[in-house]
């Protein structure tokens, strides 16, 4: 019973694995261990299906960590490296991310470039690992991921450009503290556009509907999940945890951009971050339960719109 599909199908149709809720703070603002929780009611909220626990993601991870591992005959060491690199990249990204106005573990001019490229490196290794299994389905997943990344990477960099570079800041932490002292009219439009851009990216980069449907039962329609069909046990746990952290990363990033608009104190900002993350998770749930996946050839346009929003946000700086 070790096929990677065994545990998935056991979850039933209302099975949900993503979305985040909790971020436990271990130290006063510097050392955090970002922990990913579970957003309660994606589909259940709208369609009154069976509710599942807030901590379902953790239960799954716990279960996976207690399983053995099955490797494909075809794979080499690279396949074993990929889950580690994905999780390490997500951990570094979350350590870098400012939270509720508190600076991340490290911050330097151009730090966002390192984070974007670390995510890129994790994606690269994951694509290689999926091709390593010699599976047609996983090759397909890698192929789609590579194509969509062509649109997502510029969008991500332009998004950071709109928030950090164009207003003349040196890092995200710096951008947040500067935005705290600017008026709503100066920063509001840029923040809104960048937030929309990042939200589209959050959906695309974390294999959510309308780009990807991780809970589908048809491998032919998958993107990200198709790439990890042959991962099992602790390896799969690492990958799942890495993608939960990545989703958390994007939500908190959006919160970081929006919150300075409200000029509030530290405690309020931390609470506000949780609130915004919760709202975004609910929004993702509403999107997921109200629409279907886009046709594959429409996806580049969808991700391209994120780049367009960021592009407009940058140009606005020149006009305002």
């Amino acid at each position: 019973m070790c096929s990677p599909f065994w545990w998935r199908s056991s979850g039933g149709s209302d099975y949900e694995r993503y979305a985040s809720f909790l971020n436990s703070l271990c130290d006063c603002g510097t050392i955090r261990s970002p922990v990913c929780g579970h957003h309660p009611k994606d589909e259940g909220f709208l369609f009154r299906e069976e509710r599942i626990s807030l901590f379902q993601t953790y239960r799954d991870l716990f279960k996976l960590l207690h399983k053995g591992i099955v490797y494909s005959k075809s794979v080499s060491w690279l396949f074993k490296l990929a889950p580690l690199a994905s999780l390490a990249a997500s951990l570094i990204a979350c350590a870098w991310l400012p939270f509720g106005g508190m600076t991340g573990l490290f911050s330097f001019t151009g730090g966002f470039l390192l984070i974007a490229y670390l995510f890129g490196a994790a994606r690269f290794v994951t694509m290689l690992a999926s091709l390593d299994t010699a599976s047609a389905f996983e090759g397909m997943g890698a192929n789609r991921e590579a194509l969509f990344a062509v649109f997502a990477e510029p969008a991500l960099l332009l998004g950071f450009g709109a928030v950090i570079v164009a207003p003349g800041n040196s890092s995200l932490a710096n951008a947040i503290s500067v935005a705290q002292n600017t008026t709503f009219s100066d920063y509001g439009v840029v923040a809104a556009l960048a937030a929309v851009s990042f939200f589209i990216l959050a959906l695309a980069e974390n294999s959510r509907i309308p780009v990807d449907d991780p809970t589908t039962h048809l491998e032919l329609t998958m993107i990200h999940e198709a790439m990890i069909l042959d991962n099992s046990g602790p390896d799969l746990a690492f990958i799942e945890f890495a993608s939960s952290l990545k989703l958390w990363f994007f939500y908190v990033l959006i919160a970081d951009i929006i919150l300075p608009l409200f000029h509030v104190g530290l405690v309020a900002r931390i609470c506000g971050t949780f609130l915004i993350v919760f709202v975004l998770a609910a929004l993702t749930g509403i999107v997921e339960s109200s629409m279907a996946r886009l046709r594959l050839m429409k996806v580049p346009q969808f991700i391209g719109s994120a780049a367009a929003f960021a592009f407009i946000a940058i140009l606005l700086k020149g006009i305002l």
Partner: peptide
């Protein structure tokens, strides 16, 4: 602003295409 778009967007596009080719 144009410069920022060209450098950030252009280089990111080149990077993502390179990742495609070398994958």
């Amino acid at each position: 602003e144009l410069y920022i778009v060209l450098v950030l967007g252009g280089l990111a596009l080149i990077g993502a295409l390179a990742a495609y080719a070398f994958t």
